[in-house]
């Protein structure tokens, strides 16, 4: 085994352990942190595959942005853990054997026998000057132009859907449009009316007079 193999096995072991902890951790914040670790380790494995752009994108986008956002949401929501785990032990006697059987069945098909080194030839290493980023960019804008444009449309639909579902004028909203505010003229607010002068009578009611004296 060469050095690269050792690196792979260490990273793979960490990835598996972190992935396992994501679903077994009791605290959702811990689970999210383990997910960060899993992404970070997966990025390391991609680096070994000479896919450096994807590795860095994974760290920047998933670890840096998506997971931080996710952590915020998890911390802000008051998740009732006991209710989430309700029925876990009741379902376990059935779920566990079923899961084990599925894992065994799949490992019978997906193993060294089918995806081993002797079945699938190892990818040829790239030349020294090869740039993964440049190649990705070239592919994206030539061969994969159509899916790329479709991804853009999907993002547009996501924006439209998010706004259509959440933006609303609430009846109890105290929001005032500043544009309307500055356009207001005096005539809109004050109405000047001509009226007869009211001549006040000189006599003061008794209780008011009493109060005045008391003060």
């Amino acid at each position: 085994m060469i050095f690269k193999d050792y690196v792979f096995y260490v990273l793979a072991a960490i990835l598996l352990a972190a992935g396992l902890r994501v679903i077994t951790a009791r605290n959702p914040v811990h689970a999210a942190l383990y997910l960060v670790l899993a992404f970070f380790t997966a990025a390391g494995i991609w680096l070994l595959l000479e896919a450096e752009f994807l590795a860095i994108a994974l760290v920047l986008v998933y670890v840096g942005a998506v997971m931080v956002l996710f952590l915020f949401v998890v911390m802000m929501l008051d998740i009732n853990l006991d209710r989430l785990r309700e029925g876990f032990w009741k379902a376990l006697p059935i779920a566990l054997p079923l899961g084990v059987v599925m894992v065994i069945e799949m490992s019978m098909i997906l193993g060294v026998k089918t995806f081993g080194v002797d079945q699938v030839s190892a990818p040829t290493p790239h030349a020294t000057g090869y740039s993964n980023t440049a190649e990705l960019g070239r592919q994206l804008y030539t061969d994969y132009l159509l899916p790329f444009e479709l991804a853009a449309v999907i993002l547009l639909v996501a924006i439209v859907a998010a706004i259509a579902l959440t933006l609303r004028d609430r009846k109890d909203s105290k929001f005032i449009d500043p544009a309307d505010q500055v356009k207001v003229k005096r005539a809109d607010r004050i109405r000047i009316v001509m009226m007869q002068a009211d001549v006040e009578e000189k006599s003061v009611p008794a209780d008011v007079a009493d109060k005045k004296e008391g003060a």
């Binding site: 639909v157 439209v160 859907a161």
Partner: peptide, 10 residues
Amino acid sequence: LELLSLSLYA
């Protein structure tokens, strides 16, 4: 498929 599904959910 995703474009269709996303529009339908909304």
